[in-house]
Design a protein around this nucleic acid. Sequence first.
RNA 1: GGCGCCGUAGCCAAGUGGUAAGGCAGAGGUCUGCAAAACCUCCAUCGGCGGUUCGAAUCCGCCCGGCGCCUCCA
Length: 466
Amino acid sequence: MALRFYNTLTQRVEEFAPTDGKTVRMYTCGPTVYHFVHIGNFRTFTFQDVLRRWLRAHGWQLDHVMNITDVEDKIIRSAMEERKSLREYTAVYEKAFIEDSVALRLERAERLVRATEHISEMVQAVEQLSEKGFTYKSDGSVYYRIANFPEYGKLSHSDFSGIRAGARVDVDEYEKADARDFVLWKARKNGEPGWETPLGAGRPGWHIECSVMAMKYLGETLDIHAGGVDLIFPHHENEIAQSEAITGKPFSRFWLHSEHLIVEGQKMSKSLGNFFTLRDLLERGYSPESIRYLLASVPYRKKLNFTFEGLKAAQTSIERLRNYKLRLDTEKFGEGGNEKIQERTETALRLFNDSLDDDLNTAEALAAIFEFVRDTNSSMDAGEFRAGNVGSALALLARFDSVFDVLRPTVMTQAVTDGDVEALIAERAAARKRRDFRRSDEIRNELLERGIVLEDTKEGVRWKRR
RNA sequence: GGCGCCGUAGCCAAGUGGUAAGGCAGAGGUCUGCAAAACCUCCAUCGGCGGUUCGAAUCCGCCCGGCGCCUCCA
């Protein structure tokens, strides 16, 4: 089955392949670095990570650009309050974002680009728009005149023809000709940081950075542009208006949008006390993998109800898979291979692939894996699973983990060395041999307290860190 | 008011015309010195009503209940 995505632009599921057949040129809207990125943002970034990994599983190369918005009203306000430069202020949160991303095993985009490092390109873009008659000035700021872009609204599927000038309260304190017009270049106000440019002293509007950076690195037409649903309007709509007005070509072939995350059934908000950053959750003792698993397990176009019960369930689910892999790695199976099991492995792999090809249906992909795990665990118990079946089973798990990436535990500090463990296991074995179960259990509990779990199997003791 | 989404077992959640995936939790059991791990069994007729159809969770209509965007926002 071919890879298909739901395209917001066409409102249809469409087959996807990169234009040149080799490299997927993708742009995703990254964080605004004025605070710690929250778990809802990471839902979107995790979706993008799964997307990246699955595109690569198809054999394509990636050229993925993610922006860092490091100039924007809230940043300016906060930086001024703290008497810091923009860079001083944003550096903290940018660093935190990257650390959090590493913890969640989010692959780094091929290019991570900052808005403030593309000011001159943005100025050029605004000038191009002016030359083509898409702009007007008001109070020293430059605005985009959407009336001159008839296709405005094609992404959000809204009809703006009825909107009249002055129909809305103007939130920007600037005079706009039309309510939907948006600012391309904001004139500097008293004491604000800004740039001296041919457009005047000021700073770029939010939308122009994405148009400029996307086209600078990826060309006039992208393969994929992705972000959260709340960006459809106005951000992505405005990006289209800017980019297509300049080039006359489609800005992006595919537009993918991830749904929001809610917490315990409610919208995440600071006032409700259900607002979490990754750091908050890690402090509560949840593992990065369990958070990653939970975020990835719900298909990206569905709202994700983030609950602590779900987080615990995620951790238990991961352990089940790790136990299975441990079993494959350590158990002695009979010689030869079992044809039936081989067929089931192939079926599971096919189901896994087909599910992800179907607009990244991660829930269905997981089901294929768990069904396979139960089925083959059962075969192992019955002695039907053979040494010849191990390889393909491990390959299936590897395929799974190349996307979900949760099998490897995040190593905290290793208080106990492997040697210590082995020595105690040997002592325990001796105790068990003389049926001294008191001493035997004592050792097992002692190890458990230090994070080592022992399992007695018919081939001897197996242990793991938890 | 405009546009759109959702409502499947205790929780999370697939399935979009042929008689309900998967995970977690729970109950009982097998195995084990005891555990752990694993396996087995049990646990829903899909918000409500009506319609279309041989047949609907899946299509249509109405109703009830959540929610998003339309303004900064992943």
